[in-house]
Design a protein around this nucleic acid. Structure first.
Lengths: 142, 142
DNA sequence: TTGATTTAGTTTCAAATGTAACTATCATGT
DNA sequence: ACATGATAGTTACATTTGAAACTAAATCAA
């Protein structure tokens, strides 16, 4: 019998995991139904919208996704004509990825939606809590 | 072109998701290799260690897991002889779940490990950050 | 009672995911 | 130049996962 009882509902890793799933789930429901894209695809779009011309690997690094996940998301987005790839002339292994006109349109629509969602979340917190949450997450990531 | 740029690396839902995955991943690696159990199984054990005699549905509610996930975790744990189920006499649809002696032993070993892991995480934060993180998570969960 | 509805839990099926193996290209050392 | 090793990206396979259908038992209504 351990001295310190473990209450899952107070256990930080558990609580963060549940919170993250709820938040991601709620957000992705928004753009899944409106745009028919999942989280990995959304992340690729978000990165390419901000940094056009990234390679798949660069997207993977930036978005903390597996390169396989990115590869599949890129293939799906290409199918949907939301992104375009052109081979890097200097290194033919690489593809430089950019949003298509259609992809840009989706991006322009999703970004305000995503930011609005984030704003709603942050509105529940006091400025101190926001600040602390921010640095806490940063420290937990190390 | 949206006015407010969206930087994924500053976007709260994204950051929480990545942080949660890192933390869960690191923790589960610990007990996955030592005990051969995954996150759902661990959550079932944690609940039964603390509240013996729960039904599968009660575990599902308490642990924010799908009932299918719980059903499978319970089946796996039963196979491994870590838990025992006895039919509820009054309601034969229900099974009352408890840890076996072997399950108790695993529980007794995992709990300190889990709490130690949590302590390491929390050690990185100032008391204010801990407090704020705590209430921030609570508020985000609503 | 009997029939209809709800609840606990399992099974089935399809989609999502990660690991490992693979292909193609590039870089390096000799 | 050529062999060896690294890198970008894809494919194959096995595992995980959840939604929906299903079974069995309980509850409710007439």
């Amino acid at each position: 019998m351990p001295k310190t009882p473990l209450l899952l509902e107070n256990f930080l890793p558990y609580r963060i995991s549940v919170a993250a799933n709820r938040i991601s789930g709620a957000l992705s429901r928004h753009y899944a139904e409106r745009f028919g894209i999942g989280i990995p695809e959304w992340r690729v779009i978000a990165n390419l919208g901000r940094y056009p011309g990234l390679t798949a690997n660069e997207v993977a690094e930036r978005s903390a996704m597996d390169k396989v996940t990115v590869s599949r998301a890129v293939a799906a987005l290409e199918q949907k004509k939301l992104i375009a790839r052109r081979r890097d002339a200097g290194d033919k292994r690489k593809s430089l990825l950019t949003l298509s006109a259609k992809g840009d349109a989706v991006y322009a629509e999703i970004v305000p939606l995503a930011l609005g969602f984030e704003r709603e979340l942050l509105a529940r917190l006091t400025p101190q809590e926001r600040q602390a949450l921010d640095s806490a997450i940063a420290k937990l990531m190390e």
